[in-house]
Write a protein that binds this DNA or RNA. Structure first.
Lengths: 257, 257
DNA sequence: AGGTCTTAGCGTAAATATTACGCACTAATG
DNA sequence: CATTAGTGCGTAATATTTACGCTAAGACCT
């Protein structure tokens, strides 16, 4: 089956034409987290020329949902091989969102926003939410449409129930943190400070620098490299790498912070 | 909209006729946990005369998914007002289950079990999994079809991917235990021993009797009743009740065991 | 060259939480 | 009246978490 790269479709059609081959009334929506400059960010796509939304797409009938999620991400952003985690499934009624008149006009093509029928056709009724953890640097979306890495507090009013989805994704991420490969949010080589900031940002708390250092070292999955990060103020920090075999082992026990 | 109590339909039709009013290709499936005689049990329903499955049903288009889950439980078992928690959504491809020839014949009405088309029509493609925690004693299913409370290790080979669903529901339950109203699994009045056994069963570990007692008392949400459980061997244990206001507060902090 | 900031690593004390278990007393059964 | 289990207290041993002092080194700035 030929599968078109949807980024070359008009953005409005990005959800895909409901066809014989896709599951009707269901979409997969992805909250993609990246970490950069001590900030947790989410990837937003332009849905039409004005409104923003999360990457979303349909599921082919013979496809695993998880495969659909990773395909959708690839088709809409060009990004592949990312860590994906299902976190919640959203229903129709949660989606009775109060669009502004402008948004409604653009979405519903001048039909009244009370036109529930139109909404049902143009939005999927059930959305399966996945979040992705990606290395911000590795991820260079190749998009026809425009995109934006947006810090969580600055996220604008999105289409559909995507604001709620991001909030819930973050809650799920915090809960899962103990058992999840959070390292996916970091580049292959990173400093301890960067990792600490990552945990502090996600968990919204601080750690003592020395205790954090000790704790991480005790897990024994970090490899200290001879190289250093250059160009920083003051002393250059060492770079570290993850020994993924040991990392997986530590995750099975659950890493605690 | 009139909604028929599905237990008076033929069991095969229990999923509901796909109609204008329900979401196509999606079902809600419920793993109902009950606790009795120191065993965690799951409610199974007869799907046809021979095969077992979990309660499942469709979602109406204007309905919240959570409402659909609780309606489905009520329609298939007569049970209402239970604690429900969404835990995972399952896709089509996970459902390529190896039915026995007999099961396939019954399910597919003598069509070949390779007849994927038939399968797609008769099974929902996407299933949203909920688990329910109910007081075993309070729950008296009013069913035309037959049912069974089954201990987890003794669960037979179920239809669809319902065996996998139960396994995942249990994993989710264990994870959620710290923040969830586990008290829903107990009758309004219970002994400390019963509560301890409940936690031991779910978490698959043991607790020291005295430490468990101390810990529970420190949370301050148990009310000791003057009554005792009669008819037991040896000393009769006191009955306890939950002060639900304080209980909710304790849950927000997270109860640890 | 010296000042200042930061990394890197060591150690340790204090506070909390967990676990194991002793003991006294009560109450129901045989 | 011996046995068994519930109830409730205390306490000691361990483990984990948190706070923080100290040394040394390295890179930038003036």
């Amino acid at each position: 089956m030929k599968r078109q790269i949807l980024s070359f479709l008009k953005p409005e059609e990005r959800l895909g034409t409901p066809s014989e081959n896709t599951i009707k009334d269901v979409s997969v929506d992805c909250v993609m987290f990246g970490f950069h400059a001590d900030e947790l960010k989410v990837l937003l796509l332009k849905w039409n020329n004005i409104d923003w939304s999360l990457p979303r797409g349909r599921i082919y009938k013979e496809e695993l949902i998880a495969d659909a999620a990773s395909r959708v991400l690839k088709e809409t952003t060009g990004i592949h091989d990312v860590f994906l985690q299902q976190f919640h499934t959203f229903g129709a009624a949660q989606r009775h969102k109060n669009y502004t008149d402008d948004q409604a006009a653009r979405l519903f093509d001048n039909k009244s926003k009370e036109s529930r029928e139109y909404e049902l056709v143009h939005e999927s009724i059930v959305s399966i939410g996945y979040y992705a953890l990606v290395d911000f640097e590795k991820v260079v979306p190749n998009l026809a449409a425009s995109y934006q890495w947006c810090e969580i507090p600055a996220i604008p009013d999105l289409l559909f129930d995507h604001n709620d989805m991001i909030e819930l994704a973050l809650v799920a991420l915090r809960k899962d943190l103990r058992y999840l490969p959070i390292a996916n949010l970091l580049p292959p080589k990173f400093t301890l400070r960067e990792m600490q900031k990552l945990y502090e940002t996600i968990l919204n708390r601080t750690f003592d620098r020395r205790n954090f250092h000790k704790l991480l070292m005790s897990y024994d999955f970090l490899i200290k490299l001879p190289e250093k990060r250059v160009g920083t103020a003051n002393k250059s920090p060492h770079l570290y790498q993850i020994d993924f075999e040991k990392y997986e082992l530590a995750l099975q026990d659950g890493i605690s912070y």
